[in-house]
Amino acid sequence: MKDNQRFVTSYWRVVLLVARKDLRAEIRGRELISSMFLFAFLAVVIFSFALELDREARENSVAGVLWVTIIFSGMLGLARSMAVEKDKGSLDALLIAPVHRSALFYGKALANLLFTLVIALLLMVLLTVLFNISLFVWQVLVVLVLGCIGFTVSGTLVSSMSVYARARETLLPIMLLPVILPVLISAVRASGALLAGLKAEDWLPWMQLLALVDVVFLIITYFLFDYVVEE
């Protein structure tokens, strides 16, 4: 291998390597997924008690319960994934690597996306069993992926800012929730309409809006992440 090839890694390889690093750490430690899942499980149980759901109410509220739980448990993961990097000093090590900064960002976002998707899929199984409503419609899975992309991309950017704050645990939800409300609203509406078996004109606009928000987030974060981590 030539000298310059050893240091200049291609963009997508960096993305995959950073994501793989996070996945490997998770597979060895197994603390993130388990705590996120336990939280999600508890949230679903609490929702069932708090809303006192009968059959009809369950059908109406399942999309909302699904997404609120995904977002709250996903936020646990986001906060932790950045806090660990910063507290152990590995963020600085990543930043001095001679690679494009946005590749690091997308790598972190990809790992967060995979964690959130795992939780989301487990939640769907859980809700299918506990609420007795089958959630596995392929369009719902598309909405799930789109919603998780929007959530993790903006969440990774915001959490990389909030780790520097004094009250980082409170700052992350306060900063992130208003930003991702468009994602939450369109995802809930789209999956709600899909599960109710409505026509395409009832869920397709929401899905399109969701995809649009995702694209906007992906582009904005590409430009902004450099400014967040520079020093």
């Binding site: 800012m161 902004l224 400014y227």
Partner: peptide, 14 residues
């Protein structure tokens, strides 16, 4: 100041 500027740009999407 830096983070505030970044967040002001994101916030404008709303």
């Amino acid at each position: 100041r830096r983070f505030a500027a970044v967040y002001a740009i994101i916030a404008f999407s709303s």
